[in-house]
Simulated scan of single mutants.
Amino acid sequence: MTDTLQAGGVRREDRIKVWDPAVRVFHWSLVTAFAVAYFTGDEAETVHHWAGYIALALIGLRLVWGVIGTRHARFTDFVPRPAQLQAYMRQMLRGREPRYLGHNPAAAMMILFLLLATTVIGVSGWLLTTDWGWGSELLEELHEGTVNITVVAIVLHVGAAIYESIHHRENLIRSMFTGYKRAGK
Rank of each mutant, 00 (worst) to 15 (best):
Val123Tyr: 02
Val25His: 07
Val158Arg: 04
Val123Trp: 00
His27Val: 08
Ser124Arg: 02
Thr118Glu: 08
Thr130Asp: 13
Gly125Phe: 10
Ala87Pro: 04
Leu61Gln: 02
Glu97Ala: 14
Glu170Val: 07
Ser29Val: 05
Met1Leu: 06
Arg90Thr: 12
Val123Ala: 12
Lys181Glu: 09
Asn171Thr: 12
Ser124Ile: 05
Ala160His: 03
Gly9Gln: 00
Glu13Met: 02
His157Met: 10
Phe75Pro: 10
Leu61Ser: 04
Leu139Gln: 09
Asp42Thr: 15
Gly145Asp: 11
Glu140Ile: 03
Lys185Trp: 05
Val147Asn: 01
Leu58His: 08
Asn148Gly: 09
Trp65Asp: 07
Ala55Met: 14
Phe78Val: 03
Ala55His: 07
Arg81Asn: 06
His27Tyr: 13
Ile149Pro: 05
Tyr180Cys: 11
Val158Met: 10
Thr32Tyr: 02
Gly95Arg: 03
Leu156Lys: 02
Asn104Met: 10
Ile149Trp: 12
Leu172Phe: 13
Thr4Lys: 08
Val151Leu: 13
Leu172Ala: 13
Thr40Leu: 01
Glu164Phe: 07
Gly8Thr: 05
Ala161Lys: 05
Trp126Asp: 04
Gly66Trp: 07
Leu101Gly: 06
Glu170Met: 11
Ile68Asn: 04
Phe39Lys: 01
Arg99Glu: 09
Leu101Thr: 15
Leu172Pro: 12
Leu114Gly: 12
Val31Tyr: 03
Asn104His: 06
Ile59Gln: 10
Ile162Phe: 14
His72Asn: 08
Pro105Gly: 02
His48Thr: 12
Ala106Gly: 10
Ala51Ile: 06
Val10Gly: 01
Ala117Val: 04
Phe39Val: 10
Ala35Asn: 01
Leu156Glu: 03
Ile59Tyr: 10
Val79Met: 07
Arg24Leu: 06
Glu141Thr: 10
Val18Leu: 02
Ile173Gln: 03
Arg174Tyr: 12
Ile121Tyr: 03
Met176Ala: 11
Leu56Lys: 00
Ile149Met: 14
Ser165Pro: 10
Leu128Arg: 15
Leu116Pro: 00
Arg90Gln: 13
Arg24Ala: 06
Trp132Val: 15
Ile121Pro: 06
Ser124Ala: 13
Val25Asn: 11
Arg96Val: 03
